[in-house]
């Protein structure tokens, strides 16, 4: 907008403005290049045949960009079809469960004053301070005791249980939903369940979308706990299935890169489709502090 105005006034720039524009575009292009080059090099390598990979420099473009052999090989080798299925199952259940749990908890904490309200809020806040990796030392023990290790449902339940950020997004959003809506519904004789189900939940829709995207990306990319609890070959999620490339392939990076590209394709598609929601989700997650 600022630039637009300047244009309208006159088409001349002061030297300062010109330097500023040069610096600006130089930094943007440079850091975009830095951000993109590791991924681009992977894409280039993923399209190379074995012979090309051995003989050409990594940054030389491949002969053809329609050679999908590596992708097919990588896909089969890491059992990625099954892994995609597992990831989708985990994601669907975790998202549904965390939306239900999160919105219900936010509704109660925001609308009702009862002894322990503040305590529960603080319990969740405190939980967000505990680093997940440290907690796994003993969560592992509990997962074993419950018989949750090596079962998809066990992993799903655990992933629902360690969800703090989406609860915060819901609580924040609830604060902007006018309480007079609840009151008029009560006068009309609606039960609390009806208020939650028919009024609050539909109004929370933007927050639900935001938290689903953030949580979905998080679940899709989670590998540490998945690695610990889903050791069976048939239970691996997509992030963990990539790990199968470590041993046998050594440095056959054309295959590994193909696997990497396959694994990040869904994230890329979601990103292109939902850029706005992702950005606003990042901003919403930040305000919690």
């Amino acid at each position: 907008m600022v630039k637009h105005k300047a244009n309208k006034r006159k088409k001349t720039y002061t030297p300062g403005q010109i330097i500023w524009q040069i610096v600006r575009y130089f930094s943007l292009i440079f850091f975009s290049f830095v951000a993109v080059i590791p991924v681009v090099s992977c894409v280039i390598t993923a399209f190379k045949t074995e012979e090309e990979y051995q003989t050409t420099n990594v940054m030389t473009l491949p002969k053809s960009f329609v050679n999908f052999d590596n992708f097919v090989k990588a896909f089969n080798m890491a059992n990625m079809g099954k892994a995609f299925l597992n990831s989708v199952i985990v994601m669907i259940f975790v998202l549904i469960a965390s939306v239900i749990i999160g919105t219900q908890l936010a509704y109660v904490l925001n609308r009702f004053q009862f002894p322990g309200n503040k305590l529960i809020r603080n319990l969740f806040l405190f939980a967000s301070l505990l680093p997940a990796v440290a907690m796994q030392v003993t969560v592992y023990n509990i997962m074993q005791a419950l018989g949750f290790v090596n079962h998809l449902y066990g992993y799903i339940i655990m992933m629902c249980g360690t969800d703090v950020i989406s609860i915060y997004i819901f609580i924040q959003f609830m604060e902007n939903i006018s309480i007079s809506l609840d009151e008029s519904a009560i006068i009309d004789g609606a039960s609390y369940w009806t208020i939650y189900w028919k009024i609050i939940l539909p109004l929370l829709k933007p927050a639900i979308v935001t938290s689903c995207i953030l949580k979905g990306v998080g679940v899709y990319n989670e590998y540490y706990a998945a690695n610990l609890y889903l050791m069976n070959r048939n239970l691996k999620t997509i992030a963990v299935s990539l790990y199968t490339f470590v041993g046998p392939l050594g440095s056959r990076y054309n295959l590994i890169c193909a696997g990497v590209i396959i694994s990040l394709l869904p994230a890329l598609i979601v990103f292109i489709l939902c850029q706005k929601q992702i950005y606003s989700g990042i901003a919403a997650g930040a305000v919690k502090g």
Binding site: P38, S41, V260
Partner: peptide, 19 residues
């Protein structure tokens, strides 16, 4: 461009940078 790396999973980031 600058935001996208955030969405790549940790294992993939590992491979990308080993390479």
């Amino acid at each position: 461009f600058m935001f996208f790396p955030f969405l790549i999973n940790g294992i993939a980031v590992g491979f990308i940078f080993k390479f």
